[in-house]
Simulated scan of single mutants.
Amino acid sequence: MSGPVVVGVDGSRSNPAVVEAAAKAAERLGVGLELTQVVGWPAGAGRFGIPSWEMDGTGGYASARGVLAEAERQAHSAAPRVRISREVLVGKPENVLECEARTASLTVVGADGAQGYGGLRKGSLAGRLSARVSGPLLVVRGRPNPVGPVLLAVHGTSTLRGAAEFAFAEASARGADLVAVQLRNISAARPYGGSAHAMTEDEEDLALAGALAGLRERYPDVTLRCRRPRGRSRRALVEASAESQLLVVGARGRFGFVGSPLDPICRTALREADCPVALVHC
């Protein structure tokens, strides 16, 4: 997709890190950056997503434009060659950003808004978007290791190919190694209403080999390492994220519908990872 990188700007303490991550992502992808500030509905507002210049020009919109101007300066500093646009839209943030994400190459938000780098709060924007945005979603959190690898969570078969493609592309663009962590999980490849079964190690190896078929040839510059940690899968993933610059997780809601609950691996990544998390809906 050649659409822009869309970033939700909110003026919080974590906002500079979110804007910088989005600007660098746009630079890697070779696309524009769209800075989006979402404000609440004023009295008598009209249609969803209406631009602020069509509204009554109250101080709230002037403040939002000021936040966007500062975000643009931050983005330009991080990626001077990236084309930047900015807009103030009206509505619920999750609704507006979901709509903007439909034509985006990537959507970027902070983990928890005004509370900075802590765990993902219940009801946070990132949490609400994670099950709704159909394209890749980057949640900026933690303290990434800038020279660490890109980490790929391998947890089931139905989401693996799309996540692996995204992870290889990111590792290549960043000049980083790729580490695939094979986690114990229930197979996501099952019929609606069918019973789940635990995948054997042989089945997991076959699923990984199938997902990686052709990707190694397409990205010969990427060094791939595979790990199969023993013990608790989710804890092993969080520990590995502390050494990484990005964690990539494939996501498919229950029974494969966007908007349905995420699986435990995805929820753990969004809440506890110590580096940014790219959620790739497949």
Results as ranks from 00 to 15, higher is better:
residue 100 E to K: 05
residue 91 G to H: 10
residue 86 R to Q: 13
residue 70 E to S: 14
residue 72 E to A: 13
residue 124 S to W: 00
residue 65 R to W: 10
residue 79 A to N: 06
residue 104 A to D: 08
residue 129 L to W: 11
residue 113 G to K: 00
residue 126 A to Y: 01
residue 117 Y to C: 11
residue 141 R to I: 08
residue 80 P to M: 05
residue 76 H to Y: 03
residue 131 A to K: 02
residue 115 Q to E: 04
residue 90 V to D: 01
residue 69 A to V: 04
residue 113 G to I: 06
residue 67 V to P: 04
residue 138 L to C: 05
residue 109 V to K: 04
residue 107 T to D: 05
residue 126 A to M: 04
residue 103 T to S: 01
residue 108 V to T: 12
residue 129 L to Q: 04
residue 77 S to H: 09
residue 74 Q to L: 15
residue 135 G to Y: 03
residue 136 P to L: 06
residue 139 V to E: 06
residue 115 Q to T: 08
residue 136 P to N: 10
residue 110 G to W: 00
residue 137 L to C: 10
residue 113 G to P: 00
residue 85 S to Y: 09
residue 74 Q to R: 13
residue 118 G to A: 15
residue 134 S to M: 03
residue 127 G to V: 09
residue 66 G to F: 15
residue 108 V to D: 01
residue 97 L to T: 14
residue 101 A to L: 06
residue 136 P to T: 12
residue 100 E to H: 07
residue 125 L to V: 10
residue 131 A to S: 15
residue 121 R to H: 08
residue 132 R to Y: 05
residue 75 A to L: 06
residue 113 G to C: 06
residue 118 G to E: 14
residue 69 A to I: 06
residue 94 E to F: 10
residue 80 P to Y: 02
residue 105 S to R: 13
residue 106 L to Q: 10
residue 113 G to R: 01
residue 130 S to D: 15
residue 138 L to I: 15
residue 75 A to Y: 06
residue 104 A to S: 10
residue 141 R to W: 06
residue 68 L to S: 01
residue 68 L to Y: 04
residue 97 L to A: 14
residue 127 G to H: 03
residue 98 E to P: 00
residue 74 Q to W: 07
residue 118 G to F: 06
residue 139 V to M: 08
residue 93 P to M: 13
residue 68 L to E: 04
residue 87 E to S: 05
residue 77 S to F: 02
residue 132 R to W: 03
residue 79 A to Y: 04
residue 107 T to V: 14
residue 85 S to W: 09
residue 96 V to S: 09
residue 126 A to I: 03
residue 65 R to K: 12
residue 112 D to M: 01
residue 87 E to H: 08
residue 64 A to H: 09
residue 114 A to R: 02
residue 101 A to K: 08
residue 108 V to A: 00
residue 134 S to W: 11
residue 78 A to F: 07
residue 135 G to K: 05
residue 79 A to S: 11
residue 108 V to Q: 00
residue 93 P to Q: 12
residue 101 A to F: 02
residue 77 S to R: 12
residue 88 V to E: 01
residue 94 E to S: 14
residue 91 G to W: 02
residue 93 P to I: 13
residue 135 G to N: 13
residue 140 V to F: 04
residue 111 A to Q: 01
residue 132 R to D: 11
residue 92 K to E: 10
residue 130 S to W: 07
residue 66 G to E: 14
residue 122 K to P: 03
